[in-house]
Each structure stands twice: as C-alpha cells, then as structure tokens.
Simulated scan of single mutants.
Amino acid sequence: MTDHSETQQPPQTNADLTAANAALLAENQRMAELLAAMQNNGDRKVDSKRTNAEQHEEHQSESNAKTGETPTKSGRRRANPFSEEIMSYKMPQNFTLPMTLTPYKGIGDPKFHVTKFESMMFLNSDCDPILCRSFPTFLDGAALLWFSNLSAESITSFDEFAKMFINHFAASKIYVRDSDYLSTIKQGLHESLKDYMTHFTTAALEISDLKPEVQLHAIKSGLRPRKFQEAIAVAKPKTLEEFRDKTTGQIEIEELRETRRNKKLPLQKDDDKSAK
C-alpha cells in the first residue's frame, strides 16, 4: 500500500531562527521609525497652527491698541472713547454710584442732566477719571448710542466730555417746557386749591432757571376767579413764601368744608329713604 501521510518539514536550525528573529527586529524598527515620522509631522502641523493663531492674536492686539478697541468674548470690538490716562485710573474700592439719577435718553435739557450728575457725584468724588467713567452709566437710548459711536480716545477730561454731550443734544432742549407754559395752567372749575397748587408746583419743578417772580405771577394768574383770588389781589404777596402762607389757610378751610359736606351726605340719604 501507498503511504498517504503528510511529508514532514525538516526541523529549523539555530541559524534559521536567528535569521528570522533579525528580520522581525528590522521590521519592528522600520515601523517604529515610520510612526515617529508621522508623529513629528503631526506635531509640526499643530505647532504651525498654534504659531499662526498666536501671530493673528498678536496682530489683532496691536490693531486694537492703535484703534482703542476692546475685544469681547463674542468676537465684537467696542470702541473706547476715553484716553489711556482715564482708563488706567484705579477706581476706589469703596466707590458707589448714585442710584436716584434717571438716565438721559436724548430728550430734555442736557445741561440740566450734567448739572444734576455733578451735584450727586460731589459727595463721592470730583475726580476727572471717575466722573468720565461714571457718566455713561446714566445714559440710555439715543444718548447711549451717541456715546458708543464716539471716536477712540476722543475724551481726555470730563469738561470736554460734558461739552460734547451738551452740544450734541442742544436741540433736545426745545422739548423742555419753559416759563411760558406756566401761564397755561389754570385752576379748574371744580379743582381744589390743594390740587391746583400740586399741579402747578410739579410743572414748575421741571423748568430750569425759573425765576421766583415769574412763578409767583403765573400761579396767581391761574387762580379760579372767586373770593380767594380777590383776597390775593388785595394782599399782594411779594414772595412765593407769602403766597403759600395765604394758600395754607385757604386749603384748610376748603378741606374743613369738604369734611362737613361728606358728613351731611349720609344724613340726607337717610332722610330721602325715610320720605319714600
């Protein structure tokens, strides 16, 4: 019979094993060098990207320094109209802003707004940088938009800032009522003296540089033609204080009459019900 068993391979010698091991080591070395080359190439690309980003950032910083723009997280740039001296000033730790000043929105007397701001800030500080950096807090609407569009480093002092502000919104003063408006305020037919005085005084407070004699003439002229107006014409008060002294007594009389009238009304209603 024919032997169909597989042909056996001759055993490997030490020389064969040494040669195979050397070939394996060479292949491993080649792969290691290939991986190292790939890693170096990747590092160079990363370094290149980082370098480009750093160069761009440096270039942008130089550009911002020239234009006075401040970068924000959103990528937008906001122009800073204050000089470097104003912005480098270190604000006091205990500094607080006045909270009772209404922001100026572009309508009204800008000079009055500046004057009121300065008077409120007087208790905190009259330092130029503090005034400059605090004033925009009290701007809103069109006024805030005007401030945001000012040229970089165009403001070096608060006097300069205030002058720019007043000149720009000078036309807005036409919306402010003047002393002539007071002559249109008249006591209504059924309006109490107290309500008339409150209405008139509120309007007078909104008028800047109002002369006391003008206010006195207007408030007397607006009285309803009755006995009290005749009494004022006879007494001829020369100051607002004298006029208020006269009105105080008359207001007390009117309030007393009103109290008595309110007490009589329930009695009259009861009498009407009994008669039915």
Score class of each variant (00 low, 15 high):
V214Q: 10
N64I: 02
L139F: 09
R244A: 08
E254Q: 11
P225W: 01
T100S: 13
S83T: 03
F95S: 04
E58I: 02
A20T: 14
G188D: 07
I107P: 02
E62K: 15
H217E: 06
S154G: 08
D3R: 10
A19M: 09
F95L: 11
I174Y: 09
Q250E: 15
M1E: 11
L101P: 09
N21Y: 06
R77I: 01
E58Q: 12
H56R: 15
D3H: 11
L223W: 01
M1T: 14
D270Y: 05
Y104R: 11
G188E: 12
S172C: 11
K276W: 03
L145W: 04
S179N: 11
T259W: 05
A53L: 12
A143S: 07
T7L: 15
E69H: 09
E254N: 01
H59V: 04
E241D: 13
A170I: 03
H199Y: 10
A23D: 12
N124E: 15
D245E: 14
L216G: 01
S74G: 04
V46M: 08
A23V: 08
T70Q: 08
E191L: 11
K263Q: 13
I232K: 08
T201L: 08
C127Y: 05
F117L: 09
K111I: 12
M99F: 04
L193F: 01
K116I: 08
E27Y: 08
P98N: 13
Q39K: 11
C132F: 01
P92L: 07
L150P: 01
K264M: 10
R261E: 13
L256H: 09
N124Y: 06
L193I: 07
E213W: 06
L265A: 04
P212M: 01
A79L: 13
S61W: 02
E6W: 12
A233P: 03
G141K: 14
R260P: 01
F95R: 05
F82Q: 00
E84F: 02
S208T: 02
Q29K: 14
K73I: 09
S172F: 02
M87C: 05
G75E: 12
H199D: 09
I130P: 06
N64H: 06
V176S: 15
K49W: 04
P110N: 15
T137E: 11
K227T: 07
T184F: 06
A275S: 06
